[in-house]
Structures are given as structure tokens and as C-alpha cells.
Amino acid sequence: MTLSSDARILVVEDDRRIREELLAALREAGFQAEPAGTMKDARLGLCHPVDLVLLDLGLPDGDGLDLCQQINRDHPALPVIILTARDGPDQRVRGLDVGADDYVVKPFHLPELLARVRTVLRRTAPERSLEKVELGRLWAEPQARAAGCEDRSLRLKPREFDLLLFLLQNPGRAWTRQQLLDRVWGSHFYGTDRTVDVHIGRLRAEIERNPRAPLYLKTVWGVGYRLEAPVDELAE
């Protein structure tokens, strides 16, 4: 699957104008885009193969969060980008907690949205679990359990490596601390937000030039953390 040629995107949006313009923009960008104006249409659309769902939350026949939860349950590998006018901090966290891969608040700018779509599609490409992952100058090899920044190899404890690998495999996406605990430490692990903060702090000390002003491992205020490549490095 190439990222933009044949990816099929289901646009679940009740506002006709936004929906149509989104479809047009996505198609112009090379994606296959299918419309759905209601929860019911969305469920029908999910009967066909879909690579990504753009999901509005305020739908006429129900709450998009329920649909997101359902997608997460029935199609765990299918990424969802929530596209909503609800921008409260609790709502962002709730959206991410029910399994959304990203959360875009309306009104948005089209180029920004398309960039996020590409990022999500890139990281959810299936053949990646044991491959070397790279982001900017950062890299990690799951099999060798080795990680580095440029030519310098990082001295990481096992859990720190797990955390870095997980973030490298899911770049650009904001994770709540609880999600990181569940995904990296495991749901059986009894830890607190502070556990995550401490490990993030150690990772930053290893990978960042200035851990107090990180370029890779960034805080998403009110949500959690996100690993991303610095803008200048992406441009290189």
C-alpha cells in the first residue's frame, strides 16, 4: 500500500459542505474518499475495506465517540482521526482514550489535516513490528533492542527502550499517560502518571540536546506526550 494512491478514507461528517469539500480535497490529494453523513451510513461504509476514518463526533443519530469505540473494538487496526468542534481538554483526552489516533479540532486548515492523515497512515502501515524504525535522527531496532541518535547509541533501560520503540512506531500521535501505561507497561501494571513522566524525563535526557526544551519528545499540554521529528530535520 502506498500512502496516498489507494488508501481508502471514510469521511463521517454530517455537515454537507465540509464533507463534500473534504472529499474533494482528499481525492485531489490522491486518496479514495467515501462519504457518510450519519452513524448508520458510517457503519455501512465500514462493511467495505477502509484504511482510515475521519470521524465527526456530533452526528445526527448518535455520538461519534460511541462509533469510535465500536471501530476500535471491531477493527482494532483501523486508524481513526477525530474531526470535531468539541475542543475541551477533557474531550480531547476522552477521544484519545476511546482509541482515536489523532484529534483535529474544527475549524482546521486543510494542509494540516492532510499532513495528519498521511502521518497516521504511515505509522499504521502493517509491516513494521520487527523492522528498524527511524524518525529524524532517531532510530531503534526491535530485534537487537538497540536504539540510537545519529551514530550515538543510547543507553536505555529495558522499559525506556520499550517506551521509545512504542513512540517511534507511532510517531506524531499524542498519547495520554494512561495510554502509555497500558500499552508500554501493560494493563496489569499499577503505575501512576508520575511513572510515565519519570521515564519520559530519562528518555529526554538521552535523546534530546536540551532535555528542558525537547525537540523530539514533546509535551502535548493537557493530554500527554508525542514523539515527532523536528521540523528542520524533516525538511532535510
Partner: peptide
């Protein structure tokens, strides 16, 4: 507030998308 937020942002989102598409 959530409702107003939704009611304002949705048409505004449509407006911006349309304008961006038109400008493009």
C-alpha cells in the same frame, strides 16, 4: 457552551475549508 462551540465552529470550518479550496 459546548453547543455554541459546535454551532460556531462547524460553519466556520466549512467557511475555511471552502475558502482554502477556492484559493487553492
Amino acid at each position: 457552551i459546548a453547543q455554541v462551540s459546535h454551532d460556531i465552529r462547524t460553519p466556520l470550518a466549512a467557511l475555511i475549508v471552502c475558502l482554502e479550496r477556492a484559493a487553492r
